[in-house]
Amino acid sequence: MEAFLNLIERNNKMFRRDKTAVFFSLLSVIIVIGLYALFLQKMQIDSLKQASEATPELITMVNEWFVAGLLSMIAVSTTLGTFGIAIKDIESKTVVDFLTAPVSRATIQMSYVLNAIIIGFIFSFIALIVCEIFIVATGGTWLSFSSFLKVIGILALSVLLASIMNVFFTLLVNTQNSFAALSTIVGTLLGFLCGVYVPIGALPGFAQNIVMYFPVSHTTLLLRNAFMENSLTQVFAGAPTEAIEQYKLIYGITYKLHGTMLSHATSYIIILSSIIILTILSISLFKRKHR
């Protein structure tokens, strides 16, 4: 156990001290913040202004929608970034050096996973605080304590899902070059798959289905619901139910898959079963790789 905790501590230090790795793990997030500041926010407000006035409540609602997407992206990008250490250890044969000590390959692999979960959660938590300050600074209100706890819970689930998904991906690569390529692909697709670059309703039907089958997008959906509960009520006060439903469908606050509205419970089931399936796949891939 001590060897395991020691490996986690070592991986953690290695990631934190590699400023370039930290920066690149947040690059897709930094890009999306830039795009939001430049035009994404304005575009959404402009499109919503046709139905409602650009009130402070509307701006808060749009900001909360964005923040929810951002947080789910951070969970994926930071946990993926930490697995760079695992790939570097394989390529430099540091893993072989570890294996001359009485630790198993599985222990070493688990230390990378747990480090990813810890780093992912710390970064997500810091991002949540920063996002809350941003929302309040731009005219919104703090999350209630119960909503805050709910968001923390969803973030924990999101980080767990992202870590398991990323361990599966990184088991498929062995070199830092292929890992860099993987990071680029994930970083590029992430903004679309979380429905942050473009609202899901603006995508063609098949692309919408892909997004809905992507388990991380369900953490985005749950986060949006947790963040936007109050602002949705305020912005759409007095508006017909159809208008709210329409907005929710277009902006990925509710999913309608093959004509069926998905409940929050379904999203939780999709996330949890994805975690289980990806864990099983990762274990079998790991065993096959090191047979």
Binding site: R10, K13, M14, R17, D18, S92, K93, T94, V96, D97
Partner: peptide, 11 residues
């Protein structure tokens, strides 16, 4: 002790 240096450069 392996031929190549395998300790962590940032530690």
């Amino acid at each position: 002790v392996f031929q190549q240096s395998l300790l962590d450069e940032r530690l």
